[in-house]
Design a binder for these strands. Sequence first.
DNA 1: CGAATGCTTCGGCTAATATCGAAGTATGAA
DNA 2: TTCATACTTCGATATTAGCCGAAGCATTCG
Lengths: 226, 226
Amino acid sequence: MKEGPDISRVAALIGDPARANMLTALMTGKALTATELAAEAGVTAQTASGHLAKLFDGGLVQSRKQGRHKYFALAHGDVAVALEGLMGLAGGELRTRTGPKDAALRQVRVCYNHLAGQMGVQMFSSLILRGYMRDDPDAPILTASGQEFIAQFGVDLDALSQQRAPLCRSCLDWSERRTHLAGSLGRAILTKMEQSGWVKRDDKSRALLFSQAGASAFQVAFPETG
Amino acid sequence: MKEGPDISRVAALIGDPARANMLTALMTGKALTATELAAEAGVTAQTASGHLAKLFDGGLVQSRKQGRHKYFALAHGDVAVALEGLMGLAGGELRTRTGPKDAALRQVRVCYNHLAGQMGVQMFSSLILRGYMRDDPDAPILTASGQEFIAQFGVDLDALSQQRAPLCRSCLDWSERRTHLAGSLGRAILTKMEQSGWVKRDDKSRALLFSQAGASAFQVAFPETG
DNA sequence: CGAATGCTTCGGCTAATATCGAAGTATGAA
DNA sequence: TTCATACTTCGATATTAGCCGAAGCATTCG
């Protein structure tokens, strides 16, 4: 009578309108906070909290606590695939929403001491896609080829590993809502970029000012799609 | 927020255990009567009637009356694709149970009307690696050499391209977690294999029974190049 | 013609669950 | 510290929806 896995459980999870709205909102690939998802679903915070707990238990979303916010994202690509399949049956359309303010800050800025914004996310994903780094659930891990790449970039890894602070750490990007590289390595890379004259910090804001040559060099070092 | 075409509606349809069992039973591609589906779902005939009406209204199944029987089948291939996607999500949770029947199903089975399981994935990747097919993000594309290969295999491509249904389509395999070939071409290939006596369908399950000669011929036609 | 089978509709019972108000924790800011 | 924000837990309510018994059509067969 029963063949294959039980699909009713996971389908029932998606079958609630509030949860379905949350999941579709997460289809952008960006992480959203619990309150944002509550607004997206049109329910109160308490209700949303219950829904999100169920989605987490069902393995459809992953969560990440950062400060007093809790960010949620789809657990993995298979979830998006399944959702797309359902959308094909419903003939649905996708809507987009996220509103950052300053365009310059959204493109690139400093986050404590490391690179953030669109370029920060690009650097991180470029490292991942070329096999220099592995996005472990716990923390990113620099591979052997990655260590070589970073050394050639001009960062002294041995000195960094002496420090107490973790070498690699992923940080959720404010505007992009995707992970970028933090930790002592992220800090060292930004420092190296400053030393090389690629970029200067703005005194008043978190904006970063790339020189024309620096921007070009960045694109060469961390190309967009691998 | 009650806007637009709802993914939750169709997901809720699949979300009921009885309906999910009916749909999985229909994944064989065979049409089943209402009473057969009632037994499959473990409910009475009245309950099944209500479920099937809902599935029909939701566009997931098609029905045709024949004498005093009413036969149901999946509405179209997209439904099977969506169901397989959901199975991929639910598969991870039920890793513990692997019966003898599951092993056979993992190796090869029928997905609506095309080949699935380990052999289905092998066929797909064999076509890709030999340059007969290109795995476009949108949908797989048959190359010129691929068209020649398929024609030699004994499938009339001209007749297929006349149909409204897409020729090539990728479907995510729930056991292998990789794509296999669906669409009218996938269906035609399986039909050809049946006509050639390579394989027979099981009446009760999604299992496929390859003859010894058929299995050998399959390995010759779609070698494991990877 | 009855009798039997396959399917559907109706009514009521029951269980599940989505929802929100209120109160409780945790983190960050003033 | 004190306050505000973000999120969670608890309790109660209400709507929903699955389920089956009983009865009603429709079709087929003896």
